[in-house]
C-alpha cells in the first residue's frame, strides 16, 4: 500500500481543475456540476466552492446517483441507493460537468450518462476526475484530470477524503 497523491497535491489538483473548467466554459452561469456519490459528490462540492471564489458567483452543484443504471447490478449483492439532487436550474440546455473520483473502466460514466439522459438534455456533458488510472473498457475519456496514475489491473486505487475518512489521500493497493 502506497500513497499516490498527498493532501496538498489533491488540493492543488482541485484548484487547477476548477480553473480549467472555467476556462473551457466562458459562460460560467450555465455550468452545473454533478458529483457521483459518494466521493465524487464531495469533490463536486469542493470544486464548486473554488469556482464560486474564482468566478465571483454561485455555481450550481448537485449529485447524480447511478446505482439504478449500473450494468453490473446482477453480479453483486444489492447496493444501497444514494441521493440524487439536481440543482433547481435543471440540466436542460446546461453545461453539465460530471465529477468522479477515479476513472477506471468507464462503466460508471456510461451509467451516469444514461441516468443524466433520463433527467434531461444538457447542451454538453464534460467529465472531471481526480485520478485517471487507465484500463478503459468503453470509449470514454475525461476532459479534466487531476492526475494520471499508471496502474496494473490488479491494483486498486482508493481516494480518502476528510469528509468521510478524516484524511485527504489517494492510496494505491496491491490486491491478490
Amino acid at each position: 500500500m502506497s500513497s499516490a497523491l498527498s493532501a496538498p497535491e489533491i488540493a492543488r489538483a482541485l484548484i487547477r481543475i476548477s480553473h480549467e473548467i472555467l476556462e473551457a466554459n466562458p459562460d460560467s452561469s450555465k455550468i452545473t456540476l454533478l458529483g457521483i456519490p459518494t466521493r465524487g459528490a464531495h469533490l463536486a462540492h469542493r470544486i464548486g466552492v473554488h469556482m464560486r471564489e474564482f468566478a465571483g458567483h454561485e455555481i450550481a452543484v448537485g449529485t447524480l446517483d447511478i446505482t439504478m443504471h449500473r450494468d453490473d447490478l446482477r453480479m453483486r449483492p444489492p447496493r444501497p441507493i444514494m441521493p440524487t439532487s439536481i440543482p433547481h436550474q435543471g440540466v436542460e440546455g446546461r453545461e453539465v460537468i460530471l465529477i468522479d473520483d477515479v476513472l477506471f473502466s468507464g462503466r460508471t460514466i456510461r451509467s451516469a450518462l444514461d441516468a443524466l439522459g433520463e433527467i434531461g438534455r444538457p447542451r454538453r456533458v464534460q467529465l472531471a476526475v481526480l485520478v485517471d488510472r487507465g484500463h478503459r473498457e468503453l470509449p470514454i475519456r475525461a476532459d479534466f484530470v487531476g492526475k494520471n496514475i499508471p496502474t496494473s489491473i490488479t491494483q486498486s486505487v482508493k481516494l480518502h477524503l476528510t469528509e468521510i475518512d478524516s484524511v485527504d489521500e489517494v492510496m494505491l493497493e496491491d490486491q491478490r
Binding site: M68, H69, I81, M82, T84, E118
Partner: peptide, 13 residues
Amino acid sequence: ELARISDGTVKKL
C-alpha cells in the same frame, strides 16, 4: 430515494 426519483421527471428506471 426511489420516491425522490419518481417525484422528479424520471418515471422509469
